[in-house]
Amino acid sequence: MTDSSSAGAARQRAGRTLRWPLAAPTLIVWATLFAVPVALLILFSFGRIDPSTYKVSFGWTFSNYSKLLEPVYASMLVRSLLIAVASAFICLLVGFPTAYFISRCQGRLQQLLLLAVIIPFWVSFIVRTYAWVSLLRNGGPVEALLRGLHIGSGALDILYTPGSVMVGMVVNYLPLMILPLFVALERVDPSLEFAAADLGTPPRRVLTRVVLPLSVPGVVAGVVLVAIPAAGEYVVPAILGGGKTSMFGNVIFDQFTKTGNYPFGAALAVVFIAFLMLALVLARVAIGSREDVV
């Protein structure tokens, strides 16, 4: 009895002393690949650049942040957030029925459908986006389809419009919406739907009164997963939007690769990260208040 308990205590001690060494690889990776770069970013954002030598002098200037208040940047930030919200909303509208359908399929068919949702991820994001240029251009298949359905005639000029940007955003980010929705919907006990119907609820209201409220954690996860990368998106607007509408991500990208103004780019990035963190916190609060559902 004493033997085994002291052995247990020794094991516990060993477990405690092993805890840090075991966590060390992850912590080191986290520190070097996340904490240090972010700290550098913040450091740079308070620096100043010499416009001819491009040397960064570090100090505590807020000029980079005050430049951000210029209307051109503020409007780009607002636009990026709006596009992010809009993409997330459309993804939700398209993704919810899809996820619901898949969650109510059985066995092999369900696996197959999930695979179909995931497969596009195996193709490079940029290649997928360029593919849509071919699909959406005048004389392309989408135009032919719409004409075949008598939705339009002649050259439809779909490409390089806000609409084509939306198409690009939605098709690229839809899987990120469908997967968490699927997980949430699969956990909704079908007997709850039977119960609601049994209590006199027609199918559409079963959806709004039971299925939708119960899938809120999935909806929040999906919206966050879509909206955050969508807010930072700059490839899709550049390729499918004809480069006419810069997003916040484009400006950040430009500061680092074109104008070479690292401090200003860093300030833009810091502000952007702050906005996204705020969104994440809000999302957590939204999920948290539903905790007893999960």
Partner: peptide, 27 residues
């Protein structure tokens, strides 16, 4: 089912987890 004058008590109860007892009964 929603147009039948019949109601069911399910084996696993099938209570709505996102609603209170009162809301469940009032459903």
């Amino acid at each position: 089912p929603y147009r039948r004058p019949i109601n069911t008590v399910f084996q696993n109860y099938a209570l709505f987890p996102h609603l209170t007892v009162g809301e469940n009964v009032a459903f």
